[in-house]
């Protein structure tokens, strides 16, 4: 029981910086969706059921320019491709939850993936931790979408630097893991692939999945070479 309490506390503390960033992002979603005249029930229900910042923002943008249902759904599939990779990597950490994994799967996102994997690497499978960070992010996302809809343009997340929390949290989470040559090779390869793809196709939605699939091969290669040496 004490261990569970400690896990919940740790999960909440570690989720907090990203929850703040998610809240800021959710405000932006609410504001934009309200401007697109989607209606408060639709805006909030989308947050409750879809729970995906990138998908929801893009859908709102596409609806405002009159995109077709097929093009919106195709874009959503592209945006969600990386979830396949996240799910596969997170599977071992979530499987001890047995049937509850169907509920925990709902929380597979960029942010829960980053925190969940960091936890798994140190402590092994911890579905409770994953559940708490998911719940924290979920509440932040749904509430902020609602608030953004209600208050409109009165809050500017950029003014408070809330948008910076995402990348800086990722940097703080990434660095401790860069302690071996294969890990460093993986990171540099992913950065190179990321820069290359963004340069060729700015803002494309495949950068993360392509880097996520290909860059680990560089890590395997470097590890193989160092074992041979």
């Amino acid at each position: 029981m004490a261990a569970a309490k400690e896990t919940i506390k740790t999960a909440f503390i570690e989720a907090l910086p990203l929850a703040v960033a998610i809240f800021a992002y959710g405000l932006s979603y609410g504001v934009l969706a309200a401007q697109a005249e989607l209606g408060i029930a639709v805006i909030v229900l989308m947050s409750i059921l879809v729970f995906s910042g990138s998908v929801q923002m893009v859908v709102v943008a596409m609806l405002t320019v009159g995109a077709s249902l097929a093009s919106i759904l195709f874009t959503a599939v592209l945006l969600n491709l990386r979830n396949l990779l996240y799910g596969a990597a997170l599977a071992e950490g979530i499987l001890p939850a047995k049937k509850w994994r169907w509920l925990l799967a709902y929380g597979v996102t960029d942010e829960t993936f980053v925190l969940g994997i960091a936890r798994y690497k140190v402590y092994g499978p911890d579905p409770l931790y994953f559940g708490v960070i998911t719940a924290t992010f979920y509440i932040a996302w749904v509430l902020s979408g609602l608030m953004g809809t209600l208050i409109g343009n009165q809050v500017d997340p950029q003014k408070w630097g809330l948008d910076l929390a995402f990348p800086l949290t990722f940097i703080a989470l990434l660095l401790p893991g860069l302690n071996t040559s294969p890990a460093i090779a993986t990171a540099f390869t992913a950065i190179a692939i990321g820069i290359g793809l963004e340069y060729l196709m700015p803002g494309n939605e495949l950068t993360i999945i392509i880097a996520g699939v290909l860059a680990p091969l560089a890590g395997l290669y470097v590890r193989g070479r160092s074992k041979d040496a």
Partner: peptide, 28 residues
Amino acid sequence: RLYFSYVPIAVISALIVKQVLIPVDGEL
């Protein structure tokens, strides 16, 4: 297993790149 242990590093690195390089009017 080793491959999947490197996936998070790759994904986080790519996410950081996407936050540093912002497309504005089709230009990075």
